[in-house]
Design a protein around this nucleic acid. Structure first.
Length: 385
DNA sequence: CAGCAGGGGGCGT
DNA sequence: CGCCCCCTGCTGT
């Protein structure tokens, strides 16, 4: 050590820091991301979100967009309110009745201290190879898939896989912590070891930054707005890694944001005229009303609660209903996206009555029957399900 | 390498 | 919704 080394300590640093953070949040100053939940929009700071959640951290890492809009499906806005309070303030008061739901959401979002064991920041290690099994894995396009594990054996999103077979998806959170005391803090370790549900369906919406016809309905990776790595065309590879590694089923497979990179929040610059903020609660400060149409999240099957479509919602370009949120592929018609989503969810509604085979398309069943069982199916005949 | 089956997507209706 | 095309992986020769 050198001589004369002085330690300058800001006594009230933490308090001041949090206070400023609180104000910044309140005024939405310097926010660089937006969380959308149930039509409510929460301007947030990536820094804070990343700090409190590895899940968000990964999302932002993989989102080249400067100001992504992250739409969380199946998250209650009141939970998000509470979680944001928790993340910004370090604590939050919730009703006991809301606790289970809150914890469930926290688990899904891997909120530190709530769902993920908090770690001593002074002992911070870069070990990011922890389990990320809870995220819905996107399915790669086949030519990118070298392992070619049958889809039915893939660890698809638990919600989805559970729903496509026997049991309907349950929205009931695992109530491990119903008796936790309030305010919520440091409540667990056990959950981390148990099966963690996948994060809620997350969608990063980007503003329409370029020609809406870009990459439209191309055969291969129809988007040409760029890849995760912006130009190296490695988007598929990114996804591949996620799927190859069972421990990497995380937001690592996060779709979308790369598709239409660039751009700030669409409402950054006035003109909110085109936005019908259905259910929009006006959480954003004045002048930050989003424009464009928000997705109603059409699922490919009503029976798959967590299934959703409409990934790269073109806030202005209305492409949300035709772009896969998981792989970024854009289709000519919403129905094609719905059908495509089955390739991600593993949903195979069309069962062969002669063997255990199931297919994702009626035509496949027909094909199967014809080619395997030499059975011709008359047009209009209802496929067994 | 050829054939088969499964599966994804385009497109007509 | 239905049909079709095409790609891919597997398997037998």
């Amino acid at each position: 050590m050198e001589d004369g080394l002085l330690s300058l300590k800001w006594n009230n640093h933490k308090i001041t820091f949090f206070e400023i953070l609180r104000v910044l949040r309140e005024k939405a100053n310097y926010t660089d991301a937006t969380i959308a939940v149930e039509g409510k929009f929460y301007p947030v700071h990536k820094l804070v979100m990343s700090t409190c959640s590895e899940y968000f951290s990964e999302i932002f890492e993989r989102t080249p967009c400067k100001s992504p809009v992250i739409v969380l499906k199946d998250v209650r806005s009141q939970d998000m309110d509470a979680l944001l309070d928790y993340m910004y303030l370090g604590e939050v008061n919730v009703n006991q009745n809301d606790l289970a739901s809150l914890l469930k959401t926290a688990e899904c979002l891997r909120i530190k201290g709530l769902a993920v064991p908090d770690e001593d920041p002074t002992k911070f290690r870069k070990g990011q190879s922890d389990d990320r099994r809870e995220s819905p894995p996107p399915k790669r396009r086949r030519h990118e898939d070298s392992s070619s594990q049958p889809l039915s054996q893939r660890p698809v999103s638990p919600t989805i896989s559970a729903s496509s077979k026997t049991t309907p998806p349950s929205r009931t959170p695992p109530l491990q912590h119903q008796t936790s005391s309030l305010p919520v803090s440091q409540s667990q370790d056990s959950v981390h070891d148990s099966i963690v549900d996948p994060p809620p369906m997350v969608k990063v919406e980007m503003e329409e930054a370029d020609d809406p016809d870009d990459g439209y309905s191309r055969r291969d990776n129809s988007y040409d707005g760029g890849s995760v790595n912006e130009g190296d065309g490695d988007f598929g590879t990114e996804l591949s890694k996620s799927e190859h590694d069972p421990d990497n089923y995380g937001s690592g497979s996060f779709p979308g944001p790369s598709i239409q990179p660039g751009g700030d929040l669409p409402w950054d610059e006035g003109d909110s005229s085109s936005f019908p903020p259905e259910g929009f609660s006006g959480d954003l400060p004045a002048g930050q009303q989003p424009q464009g149409v928000f997705s109603q999240l059409v699922g490919p099957s009503a029976g798959v609660a967590n299934t959703w479509t409409g990934g790269i919602g073109m806030l202005a370009g209305l492409r949300w209903d035709r772009t896969c949120c998981w792989c970024g592929r854009t289709f000519m018609r919403p129905a094609e996206l719905t059908r495509h989503m089955r390739s991600h969810t593993g949903e195979k509604p069309f069962a062969c009555h002669l063997c255990p085979w199931r297919g994702s398309q009626t035509w496949h069943l027909k094909n199967h029957l014809a080619r395997v069982h030499f059975v011709a199916v008359k047009s209009g005949e209802a496929p067994s399900q």
